[in-house]
Design a protein around this nucleic acid. Structure first.
Length: 267
DNA sequence: AATGCGAACAACCGCTCGTTG
DNA sequence: GCAACGAGCGGTTGTTCGCAT
């Protein structure tokens, strides 16, 4: 397929954007939108290619962009999501409001990779992130290996309870799903449809003393009672109770909750 | 003060995918 | 079915900045 010349065209500017260019681009997008990036620079009077304009807008000028350092929660979420999705930065960014794929990619390469390596080097590290992360480190593969999916978010694939094997402490967290062929397309699709977090989930969840754990979840007395797939009631009962894993973030809980049909309960 | 080096981030490049004629 | 095109994605590079020497 023939490639478009894009920025190679003579006369088009490259390199860092000036405040003036930013102003022009913002003003133009606010006034006319960005239906056609290729035509935009000409219309706006910018000596840039459409690709460059799009990138500048998406990664820097968009009004909903959250600037500043990543919180610990955001970093943990990135690690978890990277474990599930691999190097699919845009998919990860979609789960982190206000953050761009480029930003996440940069943070991953500069911070989080190192953090994971450190965790790996620590004998008592949690380990749940590191093994998979190291497999995925070089790219989006994460396939053709037994995958520790970290959580049974693939409940949609309706595994039998025998496919899960409880390993250590958390009733859900450490269930392993061994699959012969790794993550399948439909499972990735399932991850893609990760729902927006329902407002009332947060208000309920954060009413807990520990802001990282939904109050809606209580430790079950007998973890072996858990049956998969979980009913909404079971999901509400599923406990965690292991403070060392508190930093693992909320989205896991929400996913379990939603997949168990908990949203209807909230509504 | 000058220099070297690494971290962080912005931007570019090349590719794939989806759409359209 | 095919080619052309635009948009989007992920990998990579270039630049800037802060810190150590």
């Amino acid at each position: 397929m023939a490639r478009s010349p894009c920025c190679d065209k003579m006369g088009l500017k490259k390199g860092p954007w000036t405040p003036e260019e930013d102003k022009i681009l913002v003003a133009h997008v606010q006034k006319h939108g960005h239906g056609n990036w290729r035509a935009l620079p000409k219309q706006a009077g910018l000596l840039r290619c459409g690709k460059s304009c799009r990138l500048r807008w998406v990664n820097y000028l968009r009004p909903d962009i959250k600037r500043g350092n990543f919180s610990r929660e955001e970093e943990d979420a990135i690690i978890d999501l990277h474990e599930k999705l691999g190097n699919r930065w845009s998919a990860i960014a979609a789960r982190l409001p206000g953050r761009t794929d480029n930003e996440i990619k940069n943070v991953w390469h500069t911070n989080l990779k190192k953090r994971l390596k450190k965790k790996l080097a620590t004998p008592n590290s949690k380990g749940h992130s590191t093994a998979a992360a190291s497999k995925c480190d070089s790219g989006s593969a994460c396939q053709s290996e037994p995958v520790n999916l970290n959580f049974p978010g693939k409940i949609s694939s309706q595994p039998s309870s025998s496919e899960f094997s409880s390993i250590t402490d958390s009733p859900i967290r450490n269930m392993e799903i061994h699959m012969n062929t790794g993550i399948k397309d439909e499972q990735m699709d399932s991850l893609e449809s990760f729902p927006e977090i329902h407002e009332s989930f947060w208000s309920d969840a954060l009413s807990s003393d520990n802001s990282s754990m939904p109050s809606a979840f209580h430790t079950v007395n007998d973890e072996s009672q858990l049956q998969f797939p979980l009913s909404p009631a079971d999901a509400l009962e599923v406990g965690y109770g292991h403070s060392s894993r508190i930093d693992d973030g909320m989205e896991f809980w929400y996913d379990v909750f939603i997949r168990a049909g908990g949203l209807q309960e909230l509504n």
